[in-house]
């Protein structure tokens, strides 16, 4: 028995001259909820398609539950559940017909694994006769999750399941993933939303086809070397311009309602910064020092990578 569900070794993939994946290696333990975090075009979908045997890696090897994705792809197709980034159910079939179809092609029935999908399915069951194309975004994702769960996969691969889904449905979706993890299913999920990263056991930050960091979410944000200063005032754009002029400033970027910045050795006193800004005519200035989040780490790592190049 090995305790790694997924082992990825030095995988590279190119489309023509575009390098989608560069030398990627990592492992995912059994029963782990693993997040692949990165912006659009970072290579998340390519990697997931290699995992689900839909693409061949140019170099490197991947095993899932001990099976090689190239040679033993048939085995993997039986034990993996894959939910593509695009809604990929039959829009002209009803909710129930979709579910039944996917149960049948995996050689099982809805009844057999109903316990797995029950929590999700009860929410869409009232609409079971509705055509899948007429469901709302959140409902579609729930149905898609049901469809890739119905054969009791050992491993779930979900490509951006919450993209384009409203905040409440996103929250519900992640709660469901938590319950599935409790059932012992290994879950790989990709998302462009940094706030979802903290809900994973471990995350990998991916950008331009390379993994920048792999760790527990709290460690990734903890590995951030410098404290973050969060600043806001009434007029945000002039604030951004002015903060760039502040002595000792290293990085300045908009982050939600605040501007985040890191400082060098100079200018570490909040009072001095406040005075600096008020002299420039800013009102309602608010300054605080915070612990960095994953997004901060991501931006930090990205700029480090740029320096290397």
């Amino acid at each position: 028995m090995q305790d790694q569900a997924v082992i990825i070794r030095q995988v590279s993939k190119s489309y023509g001259n575009t390098r989608a994946l560069r030398d990627i290696s990592f492992q995912v333990g059994k029963g782990e909820l693993f997040g692949l975090i990165g912006p659009d075009g970072a290579g998340k979908t390519s990697l997931f398609r290699i995992l689900t045997t839909l693409l061949l890696p140019d170099q490197g090897s991947v095993t899932i539950e001990g099976y090689d994705v190239v040679k033993q792809y048939r085995k993997i197709r039986n034990l993996a559940g894959y939910m593509p980034g695009r809604f990929s159910l039959y829009q002209d079939l009803s909710v129930e017909e979709n579910l039944k179809f996917f149960a049948t092609i995996f050689g099982t029935t809805i009844k057999e694994n109903y316990h797995l999908i029950r929590d999700i399915y009860v929410q869409i069951e009232p609409f079971k006769d509705r055509l899948a194309g007429k469901l709302s975004g959140g409902m579609k994702q729930k149905l898609a999750l049901c469809c890739c769960l119905v054969h009791k996969p050992a491993i779930l691969v979900l490509d951006e399941p919450t993209t384009g889904v409203d905040a409440i449905s996103r929250k519900e979706f992640w709660e469901m993933l938590g319950r599935l993890k409790a059932e012992g299913i290994t879950i790989l999920v990709s998302t462009p939303y940094m706030d979802e990263a903290s809900l994973c056991d471990r995350i990998a930050l991916i950008e331009k086809g390379s993994i920048m960091a792999i760790d527990r979410p709290e460690n990734i944000s903890g590995s951030f070397s410098k404290p973050i200063w969060a600043v806001r005032s009434r007029e945000m754009y002039p604030l951004l311009i002015d903060l760039r002029q502040y002595p000792g400033v290293e990085k300045v970027y908009l982050f939600g309602q605040y501007i985040h910045l890191t400082l060098g050795n100079e200018g570490q006193e909040p009072g001095r910064m406040k005075k600096f800004l008020e002299d420039k005519g800013h009102e309602e200035v608010e300054i605080k020092v915070i612990t960095p989040g994953i997004e901060d780490s991501f931006i930090e790592l990205m700029s480090q990578q740029k320096r290397h190049e």
């Binding site: 689900t52 045997t53 839909l54 048939r74 197709r77 039986n78 993996a80 894959y82 593509p84 695009r86 809604f87 990929s88 159910l89 039959y90 829009q91 996917f102 092609i105 995996f106 050689g107 469809c147 890739c148």
Partner: peptide
Amino acid sequence: ELGTMEVLLASPL
């Protein structure tokens, strides 16, 4: 075109 082939291919069919 609709992307359902992706799911069919990833299935044991």
